[in-house]
């Protein structure tokens, strides 16, 4: 077990444990910050998987963007009265059962049945991943790239329209 693997296990443990924390905690705010921790270590996993660009993107968009948005949403949808924000659970049995079954089936498949022989050939990854991704986004993946751009624009306008203050119809 070299140090790369050790760090990987470390990040993996943080990811899974904090995700479990989200599941078990009842304090909504703690859940949000645990999610931040989870995303952060997922970014670490990306970096270990030779995808440092995606790792940094994860940090920038998820942790710096979406999570802050979540906390803001939380502030806007609760009454602040000094008490801790707690939430309740429902469908507990179905949820846990489904999750466990899903997890066990998939992990069984991965560990015992799946065959990834094709991937074992050691091909060299591109030297400069950023350059590679950039060139590919502008050539091979141009249409998805543009569609993603349009999607973002549509989401921006849509979010603005939805959350806009509308006058009541009665007036």
């Amino acid at each position: 077990m070299n140090w790369m693997t050790t760090i990987f296990y470390f990040f993996g443990a943080i990811t899974v444990l904090s995700a479990l924390g989200i599941l078990f905690t009842r304090n909504v705010l703690h859940a949000t910050f645990l999610l931040m921790l989870s995303f952060f270590s997922v970014a670490g996993i990306y970096v270990l998987g030779n995808a440092s660009f995606i790792g940094v993107t994860q940090l920038l968009i998820y942790v710096g963007g979406i999570l802050i948005l979540m906390v803001f949403g939380l502030m806007l949808t609760t009454k602040l009265n000094g008490k801790a924000l707690v939430t309740e659970n429902h469908n507990r049995l179905i949820g846990v059962l489904l999750g466990t079954v899903f997890f066990s089936i998939l992990s069984y498949i991965i560990i015992f049945s799946a065959n990834f022989e094709m991937l074992k050939s050691n091909k060299t990854l591109p030297e400069n991943a950023v350059e590679f991704i950039g060139i590919n986004l502008m050539s091979n993946y141009l249409i998805p790239f543009e569609i993603a751009a349009i999607l973002l624009l549509v989401a921006l306008i849509g979010a603005a329209v939805i959350s806009e203050k509308r006058k009541e119809k009665q007036e």
Binding site: T15, V16, A19, L20, I22, L23, V28, T32, S38, V42, M70, G73, L74, T77, T87, E88, N89, H90, N91, R92, I94, G95, V96, L98, G99, T100, F102, F103, L106, S107, I110
Partner: peptide, 18 residues
């Protein structure tokens, strides 16, 4: 997989929309 199944469980059992 563990992230996915934990996420799935969270979606099912939590009441708060956030």
């Amino acid at each position: 997989i563990s992230l996915f199944s934990i996420g799935l469980t969270t979606v099912i059992i939590k009441k708060n929309a956030i």
